[in-house]
């Protein structure tokens, strides 16, 4: 049995990871620098001479930042719950049931998403008017749940298929109903994937900009964060970079926290070995 020296291997791996970490963190470091920098005009790569908290103070004083982040958190969390439920039941059907049109329907879900939805805002706006969900956070929740679930069904199907059929057959022989099998047998096994679904649906809803900026027209405090952020950058003659970066920084905290708290599900090893690929 030939084995490369463990230390050499470790050094190689960590050099690679550290290099990547630096590449990943550099733009982020810039955002932090600009957010705390004083009197920043452009994004040209100069390190600010003075640092200040004034940008954050202005953010809270001059914009409806707290409202925005509250709206976005609400949209993100509700979308997350709805998407996890939708994805679970839909994927259960696709993965576990034998039915007519299964493959075609699955392809249908994939194909409709090919259409660049954000470019047909005329149609989306009409739908919102017809359903009466214009200027309403509920409307954004519904549309974001659709966007997130549609995309994530494709992802989760692959994982559900890896859970052996024998497991639910065994459960059903023991007298469990389909719903019980889903909830007590399959979903616990699919936890890593459900965690990904939860994070990604939150990210999608939290960052969605195009639809929100079109269907929300009544008032600054009804906007989600992504729209509010964008308004800081689309000034005609200049962008308030410092405030924008400060807002982006604070705005990404909820996602980092969410990721951190869900991390244990896809690294915990609780499912190790029980699932066969």
């Amino acid at each position: 049995m030939k084995k490369s020296h463990p230390l050499v291997k470790k050094i190689c791996v960590h050099t690679f990871l550290i290099f990547l970490a630096i590449v990943t963190i550099t733009p982020f470091a810039y955002i932090v620098m600009i957010a705390f920098g004083k009197n920043i005009v452009g994004t040209s790569a100069t390190i600010p001479k003075e640092f200040t908290l004034a940008n954050f103070q202005r953010l809270f004083r001059e914009t409806a930042f707290l409202d925005w982040i509250k709206n976005s958190l609400w949209i993100g969390l509700v979308t997350m719950i709805i998407s996890v439920v939708f994805v679970s039941i839909t994927v259960y059907a696709f993965s576990r049931l034998r039915f007519h049109g299964k493959q075609k329907l699955f392809q249908f879900i994939l194909l409709v998403q090919v259409f660049p939805l954000t470019l047909s805002m005329v149609s989306i706006f009409r739908i919102f008017v017809t359903l009466g969900i214009l200027n309403d956070i509920k409307g954004l929740i519904i549309v974001n749940s659709t966007l997130a679930s549609a995309g994530l069904v494709l992802l989760a199907k692959g994982y559900f298929d890896t859970i052996p059929f024998e497991i639910d057959e065994a459960a059903m022989v023991d007298g469990a109903s389909r719903l019980q099998t889903l909830i007590h047998v399959i979903l616990p096994l699919a936890k890593p994937m459900l965690a990904v679904v939860a994070i990604q649906s939150f990210v999608i809803a939290y960052n969605e900009y195009v639809i929100a900026s079109t269907v929300m027209t009544q008032g600054l405090d009804t906007m989600p964060l992504a729209v509010g952020l964008q308004s800081m950058i689309t000034g005609q003659y200049g962008t308030n970079w410092s405030m924008y970066c400060a807002a982006a920084l604070l705005g990404s905290l909820p996602m980092i926290v969410l990721f951190y708290s869900l991390q244990k599900y896809f690294i915990g090893g609780m499912t190790e070995g029980s699932v066969k690929l």
Partner: peptide
């Protein structure tokens, strides 16, 4: 059963994806 389970998502897809197409 399957169509029943898929129905909610399908309705949303029809509204928000198929109609715009």
């Amino acid at each position: 059963l399957a169509w029943g389970l898929i129905l909610p998502l399908m309705v949303l897809l029809l509204v928000f994806y198929v109609y715009p197409i």
